[in-house]
């Protein structure tokens, strides 16, 4: 009986967690960035160092969020289409050949927004609820 209750509690927690996870994500750049809306794949190319500049020109510096954060998990799953493990193996190939390094990580939406608002080369992602006029949205992921 206790086990069943425990299972219900766990599934409730997991349920709430996935609700949090299902929040929308906004991929944001500096308001002066001339890039039009971007596709999932264009964003993934920048975050995986397969492309180093914005579609509208200018060097792109991707910024990620802390490991384990719901917004990062959703971004990895929906945009990069890689689990944290696959991502680790992918970057170990790039890092140990000196070709590049994974995006720097920020602790929260506010930190990402601050960097993006300060530097026209930066691209980041945040919870869509955190979007304000200091940044420009190039992709929204439901």
């Amino acid at each position: 009986m206790n086990k069943i209750i425990l299972q219900i509690i766990i599934s409730l927690i997991v349920g709430c967690f996935s609700l949090v996870c299902s929040a929308e994500i906004a991929v944001v750049v500096h308001p002066s960035n001339t890039s039009a809306d971007m596709s999932d794949n264009q964003v993934a190319q920048l975050f995986l160092a397969k492309k180093r500049s914005f579609p509208g020109g200018g060097k792109a510096i991707p910024i990620s969020q802390a490991k384990g954060s719901p917004v990062r998990e959703l971004f990895n799953k929906k945009v990069l289409k890689k689990s944290e493990g696959k991502l680790k193996a992918y970057w170990s190939k790039i890092v140990f050949t000196g070709k590049g390094s994974p995006p720097k990580t920020m602790e929260n939406d506010a930190e990402v927004k601050k960097l993006v608002a300060d530097n026209p080369n930066i691209i980041g992602y945040i919870d869509a609820k955190s979007v304000d006029d200091t940044v420009k949205v190039v992709l929204t992921i439901p």
Binding site: S39, N41, Q42, Q45, A49, K50, K51, R52, S53, P55, K99
Partner: peptide, 12 residues
């Protein structure tokens, strides 16, 4: 090492 996408496509 030169990396880019092919136009705006999903290919790089």
């Amino acid at each position: 090492i030169y990396s880019n996408s092919i136009g705006d496509s999903d290919y790089s």
